[in-house]
Simulated assay, not measured.
Amino acid sequence: MSEYEIVFGGVAAERGWRDLKATAKNALADAWDYLTVHPTQFDSSRCYQLKGNLATVVVDGKVLPVWQYKVTDGARLRYAVDEPNPKTKKQGRVILLEASPSHPNDTDPSKNFR
């Protein structure tokens, strides 16, 4: 059993996941394995926490950290992590906020004009 379950944060994230499944099935399976075991483990080449105004999001009244996982050179998963609670035996959740077959503009330095 994994320590984290993956849930969709919205219809757009679910649709993006389906699109990625159609175009990058093996890479998405690797992402699933990674996110259900250790979604907050930094990996400079694949997984990292976002910074600045993208670093957190409020889900169900809780402020959660936001991470991004590089599925392919272009495709990204953006997600929030609700940590497990061993005292209450509550499983952790990875809330998928965005699944995109292309690099999101707001984290692409060449397209970010802020």
Rank of each mutant, 00 (worst) to 15 (best):
M1T: 11
E3P: 02
Y4I: 05
V7A: 07
G10H: 06
V11C: 12
V11W: 13
A12E: 14
G16T: 03
L20A: 01
L20Y: 01
T23C: 01
K25D: 13
K25W: 10
N26T: 10
N26Y: 09
L28M: 08
L28G: 06
A29T: 13
D30V: 08
D30Q: 15
W32K: 14
D33K: 14
D33N: 14
D33V: 07
L35P: 01
T36I: 14
T36C: 14
T36R: 15
T36M: 10
V37P: 05
V37E: 11
V37A: 13
H38M: 07
P39I: 00
T40S: 14
Q41I: 04
F42N: 08
D43L: 09
D43G: 05
D43Q: 13
S45G: 09
S45C: 06
C47A: 13
Y48T: 08
Y48M: 09
Y48A: 10
Q49M: 01
L50R: 11
L50P: 00
K51D: 07
G52T: 06
N53K: 14
A55F: 07
V57S: 10
V59I: 15
G61Q: 08
K62D: 14
L64F: 12
L64I: 01
L64S: 05
L64T: 02
P65W: 07
W67R: 00
V71W: 00
V71M: 02
D73G: 15
L77T: 03
L77I: 03
L77V: 01
R78E: 00
A80D: 01
P86L: 07
P86D: 08
P86Y: 10
K87P: 04
K87D: 14
K89Y: 10
K89L: 12
G92C: 04
R93Y: 02
V94W: 03
I95G: 09
I95R: 12
L97S: 05
L97C: 05
L97E: 04
S100A: 08
S100G: 03
S100P: 05
H103E: 11
P104N: 08
P104K: 03
D106A: 13
D106H: 13
D108S: 12
P109C: 08
